[in-house]
Simulated scan of single mutants.
Amino acid sequence: MKVAIISVTYKGALLAEHLAKSLDFKVDIFAKSGRSANDAGQTYDSLSHLIQDVFTEYDGFVFIMATGIVVRVIAPYIQDKRFDPAVVVMDDGGQHAISLLSGHIGRANELTITVSKAVNAVPVITTATDVAGLPAADVLAVKLDLVIEPFEQLKAINAAIVNGDQVTFFMDRSLANYTHFYLPAVEMGVRLVDMDDLGAAENYDSAVVITDKELYMTKPHLYLRPATLAIGIGCRRGTSSTEILTAIENCCRKIGRSPKSIAVLGTTQVKHDEVGLLAAAQQLAVPLKFFTNDELQQCISEQKFTTSSFVEEQIGVGSVCEPAALLAGQANSLLLSRTVHPKITIAIAEVKSRWWE
């Protein structure tokens, strides 16, 4: 986590310096010109100009100043809780730390606890689930690195939890390495029910389901999607990102998996400058991995994939999407074999190793 600590008084600058030394992640200090302490960090003349320049550059902010100042200065830059940084406010006496913005997904509540412990301040957290001591779906998503789908349903689900409705958390035990998700959830106090019991478990009002599968559900629900799918892609030169994304989504749904569970795209090194592919990866917010012809050919030979003489003439190897899917996911088998769309071929494997991280 990359955090900026910003003060407006000399006393606040002293606290910022002390706080920065107590934290074990990357911290930058900004002090008002003429009020810095021991020449620590950087200085600024205008707080509004500083925030305009740096608001998108940090994962979190600790403002040592009045809450009203912070509200006014950050207001023009707040967009969406999925993307806003964590914002914590402290008084320059170090008595209280307030979680102001992006408490769950941005981890402001967590940052508030951390900075409070560092200077022996009282943490002030107002998110309803935390106050009630109840598990929140977005906290679980952040903890387990899961994608919330549909995001618009999150508010209703968390409200149901706070209001005392029966919200049941379900876990898909068929997920590869499901204990990676199961054990941290249990440590958080979340009781997980086997997803196989979803149809039989009628005594719930809403459901939160950890799975990469597409399900039919009639009751209010929220999916938490793990990144489990490796997509192998072959395409003709000039194919648009819209065409590629449409083909990917169709193929995911063909095998009953959510496109929100895509972890990585794979293709041939020949396509390293393919604009449509690069844009598709950017829109999906996943890495795009390129493999050499030698790597693809070795996988083709080991798996005995069917090859195309036309493809081989064009790029030097007879198959792209199937070997690229396996290589991207470090997998041994495919969930979806080569599927042809206009100008595009897609194959899908289940990720066994996130080797690119």
Rank of each mutant, 00 (worst) to 15 (best):
Y77D: 06
Y77F: 15
I78A: 06
I78N: 01
Q79N: 15
D80Q: 02
R82Y: 05
R82W: 10
R82C: 06
F83C: 08
F83Y: 14
F83H: 15
D84W: 03
D84L: 02
P85A: 02
P85Y: 09
P85L: 08
P85N: 06
A86H: 01
A86G: 03
V87S: 13
V88F: 13
V89F: 01
M90G: 08
M90R: 11
M90T: 01
M90Q: 07
D91W: 02
D91K: 10
D92T: 05
D92M: 09
D92L: 11
D92F: 07
G93C: 05
G93N: 05
G94K: 02
G94M: 05
G94D: 05
G94C: 08
Q95T: 11
Q95R: 15
H96R: 15
A97V: 06
A97P: 04
A97Q: 12
A97E: 10
A97N: 04
A97K: 09
I98Y: 00
S99G: 07
S99Q: 13
S99I: 07
L100E: 06
L100F: 11
L100R: 13
L101A: 04
S102L: 11
H104C: 11
H104I: 08
H104L: 12
I105M: 15
G106W: 12
R107G: 03
R107W: 02
R107I: 02
R107T: 03
R107S: 08
R107N: 03
A108L: 05
N109W: 05
N109C: 07
N109D: 14
N109F: 03
E110N: 08
E110R: 13
E110Y: 08
L111F: 03
L111V: 03
L111T: 01
L111E: 02
T112V: 06
T112M: 04
I113Q: 14
I113E: 15
T114D: 06
T114S: 14
T114Q: 15
V115A: 03
V115P: 02
V115Y: 04
S116G: 12
K117Q: 15
K117S: 06
K117H: 09
A118K: 04
A118L: 11
A118Y: 07
A118Q: 07
A118P: 08
V119A: 13
V119N: 09
V119L: 15
V119Q: 11
N120K: 14
N120A: 14
N120E: 01
N120G: 03
N120L: 08
A121C: 14
A121L: 10
A121I: 10
P123D: 04
V124M: 12
V124S: 11
V124F: 10
V124L: 15
I125R: 08
I125V: 14
I125P: 10
I125D: 09
T126C: 03
T127F: 00
T127E: 13
T129S: 01
T129N: 14
V131A: 12
A132W: 10
A132E: 15
A132S: 09
G133A: 03
G133N: 00
G133D: 10
L134R: 14
L134I: 04
